[in-house]
Design a protein around this nucleic acid. Structure first.
Lengths: 230, 230
DNA sequence: ATTACTATCTCACGAGTAC
DNA sequence: TGTACTCGTGAGATAGTAA
C-alpha cells in the first residue's frame, strides 16, 4: 500500500541508480525522460510531483536542476521493494490437488508389484510400495491443469521394461504428502487406463488404512516443486 | 524496462503473495480489488489484461475464477524486482563536494594547533594535523546543501575547551578523500568565521603541497557516510 | 452472491511553445 | 541549449448494470 504513485516508481528508481540518495545529482529532464521511456515533459512533471510529495528535493541553478532523494523517498522505495520481495518469497513452492478417493480396480496394484518396477522403486524411492495404488478423482478443472503442469517439473524416473509377453511404460514419481500427514508418491504413467481427472499415488504402507479413507473421502495432495531461479 | 504495465504490478504482487505461482488459486475480483485498493471492475480488468498479455492463466468454473501466474509472469516480476534491487544497491554512500581553493587566512592554522584540539586530534584521528587548513569555496548551491545535510551523519567529535582567556567550540570531523588521492578530514566548527559556502579540511601532511594545489585550483572532496538501513 | 460489459470521468502523457 | 507551462488525446479508473 505505498503512497508513492506507481507512475513515479521508475523515475525514482532511476534517480537512485544515479546515486541521488546522498548527493544532489545534476540531471536534465530530457535524459531522465529517455531513461524512463517517457517524454521530457513527463520527466519534468514527475520531478515536480515527486518534489511536492516530499520524495525528492530539487535545487535550480539557473536552467539546470539537481535532485536528491529525501529520507521519505528512500523509505517509500524500500517499502515497495520489501512488498515485492515478500510477495515473491512468500509464494509457496508446491502444487496442490484436491479430490476424492475412487476405488482402485486392482490393476495398479498388479502393475506396480511387477519385479521390473518394484526393484526400481526400492532403489529410487527407498521402499517397495504397498501393493495397491490410491486413486483420486480430481474435483475441479484447475487440478487437472495442475496435473499437466506437473510434467514440467523434474521427477524421479522409473524406466519401462519388457518381459517375454509385453512391454511396460515408464513411471514418473513425484514425492507428495497426503492430507499433510502421510508421505507418498504421485505417479504419472506413460500408459494409463485412467482419464485425465484421476491421479494415482503409491506409498510404503496402505494409505487408506493409515488415514482411514474409503471411497468418496476427500483428500488433499501436495507435491513440492523447486522454484525456478530467475 | 519491464513490459509489464506498472498499473498491474501490485495486482501481480498480490497474486504472488496468495501463492498463485504454482497453483490455481480461487479469487474474487472484489477481494482482489480491495487488496490493491482499486475497484472490483479495475481488478477484473487487470486480470483480463494480465491474461491476454500472458502473465496469468485463468480458469472459470461457473461464476468463480481461479488464477495462476505463468512462467512469463514470474520472470517479469523477478525482473522488476531486480531492477529495483540494483537501483537501491547502486546508491553510493558518500557525499561529494566540488569547489576551488581559497587562501586560508592563517586563522584555521592557529586554532587547530591549540593544544586543547591537537591532543584530541591525535587520539581520535590518529594524527596531529598539518598546521594550516585547506579552505574550499563551494561552487554551487547543491554543495552548500550537501554541507548542511552532512550534519545529520555521525562524526568524530572533538570537544571544545577553555583556557584562561576564552572558550573554544567543538569540531566535528568527517573522514574525507580529496581528489580521490589524499585522505583528510572535513571539519565543521561550532564557531566559524566563514560563510556557508566554504568548507575546511585538515590532513596529516600539507594537502596543497601533496596535490600541488594553489588558490583557484578545483578540488573534489568525498565524504563516506553510512547508508541508513530501512 | 459473482464477472464483466458500457458509459463516463479523471489524469498521465506528449505536442507545441514561452522563457 | 535548458525547464515547465497549456492543451488535446487517450489510457485507466469508477458507476451502473446485465447475465
Amino acid at each position: 500500500m505505498p503512497e508513492l504513485k506507481l507512475q513515479h516508481l521508475l523515475t525514482l528508481a532511476e534517480l537512485f541508480s544515479k546515486g541521488a540518495r546522498y548527493n544532489f545529482i545534476p540531471i536534465t529532464t530530457s535524459s531522465l525522460g529517455r531513461s524512463i521511456r517517457k517524454s521530457q515533459q513527463a520527466a519534468s512533471k514527475h520531478l515536480l510531483e515527486l518534489e511536492s510529495d516530499g520524495y525528492v528535493e530539487r535545487i535550480r541553478s539557473g536552467t539546470r536542476v539537481s535532485v536528491r532523494i529525501t529520507t521519505k523517498g528512500q523509505a517509500e522505495m524500500t517499502k515497495i521493494f520489501s512488498v515485492l520481495k515478500s510477495s515473491l518469497e512468500t509464494s509457496p513452492s508446491y502444487v496442490e490437488f484436491r479430490g476424492s478417493i475412487v476405488s482402485g480396480m486392482g490393476e495398479g496394484a498388479y502393475y506396480m508389484s511387477l519385479k521390473g518396477y518394484a526393484k526400481q522403486f526400492k532403489s529410487k524411492l527407498g521402499y517397495i510400495p504397498f501393493p495397491g495404488t490410491l486413486n483420486v478423482k480430481l474435483k475441479d478443472k484447475e487440478f487437472i491443469e495442475a496435473k499437466r503442469s506437473l510434467e514440467a517439473y523434474p521427477a524421479i524416473m522409473v524406466n519401462g521394461f519388457s518381459d517375454d509377453r509385453r512391454t511396460y511404460g515408464w513411471v514418473k514419481c513425484y514425492p507428495a504428502r497426503i492430507n499433510n500427514k502421510v508421505d507418498a508418491a504421485l505417479i504419472l504413467l506413460e500408459r494409463t487406463h485412467h482419464d485425465d481427472s484421476v491421479i494415482e499415488l503409491i506409498s510404503k504402507e496402505s494409505i487408506k488404512k493409515t488415514l482411514r479413507l474409503s471411497a468418496g473421502s476427500q483428500v488433499t495432495i501436495r507435491v513440492n516443486v523447486k522454484p525456478k531461479s530467475g
